[in-house]
Design a protein around this nucleic acid. Structure first.
Length: 358
DNA sequence: CCTACACCAGTTTTTACATCA
DNA sequence: CTTGATGTAAAAACTGGTGTA
């Protein structure tokens, strides 16, 4: 028996199917419709033997398929549940999978039929018992999703379940769940397809993973915040980029300080030279610039435009690292840093004309 | 103009884990 | 070796602001 589920139109469009393979004789293949998906979960809940999820992207060979095999059962719940895993599959059993959470949360009673908010209400309405899973080594996950029958049963589902929201848990403290590996993997796969969600996709994902839409939304927000800043710097998240920018600014500051020190020294030397031989220089030395094209010395205080531009084009990169487009990624922190790079790229004559003229 | 919604940046809170006495 | 305290990183969740339909 194979139960095929797809994440609404988005996942279907992406050519990815979520397959719930139930090790039974009967076969049901479901697609699209959330209501039917829900029913599919109910059937999965009733299946006593084997529940297998395949997150493999059919269309893309790139990501390795995420397969979850939930073989064992929690007898008290009467559902196939993750307390062990078979070789070659994800370590679903170690953390549990929300999609397959015990009926108490996802499929139990009215909550199964209610939408996500109503699920919360149902969960709060029931005995809001935090029951750490016996299978969870950490044993600290507050499963406030509990519904009647959940307490004490433990449920191999250990951690991940939609927490009751602040408004319905009655408490002032927010409880935070850790998404299971499988949930994260599923969201990750979805994120690869589309970094943003429309309401329909959000609802579908939430339903699929037994999370609240808000949770899916928050996950995508956080995920976007951690996403690489650009394709070019695929290894950099925004946070990492900020750190890189900070480092680069430090280097800029050091470079400018060093440059300033050098120029001060140069100025002192020129002044000393002028004092020794007052007829040697009528113009500050640094105002003399050579036009690379005509090879004539321009004695104006400002270099000729052609010379300036040519000198800019041929100016060596500052010691702090090139920030031009040709620079390797490691040396080019960001476009933001480029704002601070221009003074360093200016030719020396242009940089030093002001202090030298004094 | 108002409203609803999505998004983002920044922050807070919670959890898991490592370290050490 | 075990245990509890402590620190820290990562992630979930929240808040306030902004843009858009």
């Amino acid at each position: 028996m194979e139960l095929g589920l797809s994440l609404g139109e988005t996942m279907a469009d992406a050519g990815r199917d979520l397959v719930l393979g139930l090790g039974m004789g009967m076969g049901v293949v479901r697609r699209e419709d959330e209501g039917r998906s829900k029913r599919g979960r109910e059937e999965a809940t009733a299946a006593p033997v084997r529940l297998e999820l395949d997150f493999g992207a059919r269309s893309s060979p790139e990501p390795p398929p995420v397969r979850l095999s939930l073989l064992s059962m929690v007898p008290s719940l009467g559902v196939p549940w993750a307390s062990s895993n078979s070789g070659g599959h994800l370590e679903a059993a170690s953390r549990g999978f929300d999609v397959n959470r015990a009926p108490s949360c996802a499929f139990g009673g009215a909550a199964a039929e209610a939408d996500d908010e109503e699920q919360d209400d149902a969960g709060a309405g029931g005995a809001a018992v935090s029951s750490p899973s016996p299978n969870n080594s950490a044993g600290s996950f507050p499963t406030d999703f509990s519904a009647p029958g959940q307490a004490g049963a433990g449920g191999g589902g250990d951690r991940a379940c939609s927490r009751a929201s602040d408004e319905d848990d009655g408490g002032s403290s927010r409880k935070k769940l850790r998404l299971s590996k499988e949930q994260s993997a599923f969201l990750e796969e979805s994120f690869k397809e589309h970094a943003t969600l429309n309401p329909k996709q959000k609802q579908a994902l939430a339903k699929q993973l037994n999370l609240r839409p808000r949770q899916v939304e928050v996950w995508f927000q956080n995920r976007r915040a951690r996403t690489p800043v650009s394709r070019r710097f695929a290894c950099r998240t925004k946070l990492k980029q900020t750190e890189v920018d900070c480092e680069y600014l430090k280097r800029c500051c050091e470079t400018l300080t060093e440059e300033n020190r050098r120029l001060q020294k140069e100025l002192a030397e020129l002044r000393a030279l002028k004092t020794v031989n007052p007829y040697y220089m009528h113009l500050p030395a640094t105002t003399l610039s050579m036009c690379p094209s005509c090879e004539r010395v321009a004695s104006n205080s400002a270099p000729p435009p052609a010379a300036a531009s040519a000198a800019q084009a041929t100016a060596p990169a500052p010691s702090g690292g090139g920030i031009g487009d040709a620079a390797p990624p490691e040396q080019r922190p960001s476009s933001f840093a480029a704002l601070f790079s221009s003074p360093l790229n200016r030719p020396l004559a242009a940089q030093t004309q002001a202090p030298a003229s004094s």
